[in-house]
């Protein structure tokens, strides 16, 4: 394997919602094991950018690559469906609203993809679920149903569900934005632990402090474009762009 090849590469990403251009030609790449935080005001396009990495949003222009394979390649419909399902199995995604499957138990939420998509045996999948739940500190909830969990617990199960597919990268779309403040830390803790295990991660977040703590690189987006990017120290302590400064000032004062 080529370790210098970026794990994720986005080139010239453009996206329109009707007449509105929400991504105006974005370029960025994430190295293997790197953690990138994407910050910016709401409506800046950061979620759309993240969702276009695993093709939940279809780009109108530009390319997305995962570990040397183009995600949004041109194929006929059937071939593309097969291709994208394979690619998505290598990318874990965590959503703002958890999106656990309410009709399935915690164990089933985690095992359904390995069983149905990878043909894993049930017993093996359950052992895997237990291991993943252990990682997020919820092994005792293995047979609970989502409705019985707190928001923080739901999000940790959602992380375990994504990890069970043994993805190459993890994408976090404002994973703590819907949580009560006192539940944010338990989720952040799990994400930090993943960071320490050198999981490649792209984290879209509103939490500047967490971004500063966990990210190797921070990208500041506004109006569908990357305004500035750099190490957390550079970007938070010494932002070069006026736009970045005013955004950060609002956050630090607020």
């Amino acid at each position: 394997m080529n370790d210098t090849r970026p794990m994720i590469e986005v080139r010239g990403a453009r996206k329109f919602f009707g007449p509105l251009e929400v991504l105006k030609g974005i370029d960025f790449s994430v190295a293997r094991g790197q953690i990138v935080a994407v910050i910016g005001p709401s409506g800046s396009g950061k979620s759309t950018l993240l969702r276009s990495i695993n093709h939940l949003e279809t780009l109108d222009g530009g390319e997305v690559w995962l570990d040397g394979v183009q995600v949004n390649q041109k194929l006929d419909r059937r071939s593309f469906e097969r291709h994208i399902n394979g690619v998505r199995q290598q990318m874990g995604m965590v959503f703002q609203h958890f999106n656990l499957f309410p009709h399935l138990s915690v164990a089933e939420n985690i095992t359904i993809a390995p069983i149905k998509l990878k043909g894993m045996a049930k017993a093996e999948a359950r052992a895997l679920a237990l291991k993943m739940l252990d990682k997020v500190g919820l092994a005792d909830k293995i047979d609970a149903f989502p409705a019985r969990l707190s928001g923080g617990q739901k999000q940790r199960v959602a992380i375990a569900r994504a990890l069970a597919m043994q993805p190459k990268v993890m994408l976090f779309d404002e994973a703590t934005s819907a949580l009560d403040p006192e539940l944010v830390d338990e989720v952040n803790l799990v994400m930090k632990q993943l960071a320490s295990e050198h999981m490649t991660m792209v984290i879209v977040t509103h939490e500047m402090r967490f971004a500063a703590e966990v990210a190797d690189r921070v990208i500041f987006m506004a109006d569908g474009a990357v305004v500035e990017e750099g190490s957390p120290a550079e970007l938070f302590r010494n932002p070069k762009q006026e736009r970045t400064r005013s955004f950060l000032k609002k956050f630090l004062n607020g």
Partner: peptide, 10 residues
């Protein structure tokens, strides 16, 4: 979206 993101087809 959650199912698709795990790799489930339509």
């Amino acid at each position: 979206e959650a199912a698709r993101s795990l790799g489930f087809g339509a």
